[in-house]
Nucleic acid binder design. Sequence first.
DNA 1: TTCGCGTTTACGGGAACCCGTATTTCAGTA
DNA 2: TACTGAAATACGGGTTCCCGTAAACGCGAA
Lengths: 222, 222
Amino acid sequence: MFKKVLVVEDLDTVGYGISTMLEKDLGVKEVVLTQYCDDAYLKIQAALFKNAPFDLLITDLSFQRDHRPLTIDSGKSLIEKIRTKNLELPIIICSVEEKPDTVTRFTKKNKVSAYVLKGRDGLKDLKNAVKAVFQGKGFLSDKIERLTHGKNFFEIEDYDISLLAYLSNGFTQDQISNLLSNKGVSPSSLSSIEKRLNRLKDVFQANNNVQLVANAKDLGLI
Amino acid sequence: MFKKVLVVEDLDTVGYGISTMLEKDLGVKEVVLTQYCDDAYLKIQAALFKNAPFDLLITDLSFQRDHRPLTIDSGKSLIEKIRTKNLELPIIICSVEEKPDTVTRFTKKNKVSAYVLKGRDGLKDLKNAVKAVFQGKGFLSDKIERLTHGKNFFEIEDYDISLLAYLSNGFTQDQISNLLSNKGVSPSSLSSIEKRLNRLKDVFQANNNVQLVANAKDLGLI
DNA sequence: TTCGCGTTTACGGGAACCCGTATTTCAGTA
DNA sequence: TACTGAAATACGGGTTCCCGTAAACGCGAA
């Protein structure tokens, strides 16, 4: 089993649960727990410098903000920073995030070994994930597997998000059209915006703009 | 200290963290953990029947849905059910939810003893909350305290919430009018609904229904 | 160049919205 | 009973949304 594991998790309830599991159930000798991504990166560097690197990183994706000023503010940034430095370190993501888009982004692009969904069996899944990764295999929580393999994968572009954001901020379609054309963004015509919104209404099963924005909010898109 | 505590929490990572804390740090003899609100209610009833009731309930608010059909699908419903049955049982909420409205609703209306925010110091806060409640006192996480003391809120009735809910579900104002008059709810006229929504737009600083629903979502009203 | 195809834009009509004003309803009171 | 004020309803107009159709544009391939 892994000897030295770093756990990055802001919620102490969760961190406590994970670290005791690692020690008690899996017999990991050294579990280091931190609540900040900045700190995590420093710890990784320091351990490398002392010739006692971590064998595994388990990290959350979203972190609550507090008073501390941060340079790395999310698990996403942390992982990207590690990968650009070419550090050979298996990574397991443990998150509540279950949007297909983010999941595939990580598992494919960033060479993440496992993606565990914090659900009812999150801890059990994590245990299995650690075991699998130790044997050089990958691991995805059931629901994640279904998400990435299923058909419910729509490409929502930043453009769509911006439209939804404008709407939720009280702009009319007409105002949005003017805004975009002033910015030089294309497409900007009222017609195109309507068409785009119609596609979104279709995807998110909404009757009108009100429901569309409500559903987008529920999905965490805006 | 409390002898018998029921913890209702769907995420096993969190549940594991809380229950070990209760046992190890606070010396609670019997910690029962469940991942479903339905099950929690049954356990409370059963314990009462066996003349060995729980001394304390610690519950989350939001629960992920899975295959199981549920009659009680949220911490909110669980608490309301307990309170309507007049069960004398101190309740501590432990949630990530920090919308002002939901917080005041619980602490004022439902006689909840403590509201702990699942943040960086969630577990520490929870420990203090349990101690405080055991001494007959209340407890609110710092951030929660700031939220509830900050602004005093406008009187938003259930009627207003229902309007917002209908809107967010794609109904037009006209449809809502018909729905309400069929239900025998008054006021139900289009005019009255418009007037009510105008008041809400004023309160929540919204230009139109889209922004209104978006803002209401942000505040956790719907 | 010309064709074909997809994207962007334009336009029109009906529904839903927004907003002001006017009328009706109804409970409380003299 | 009649009066009164607040709430509920009714109505009209201007704006915005919604949805269909059609024209203009852009860009590769023949």
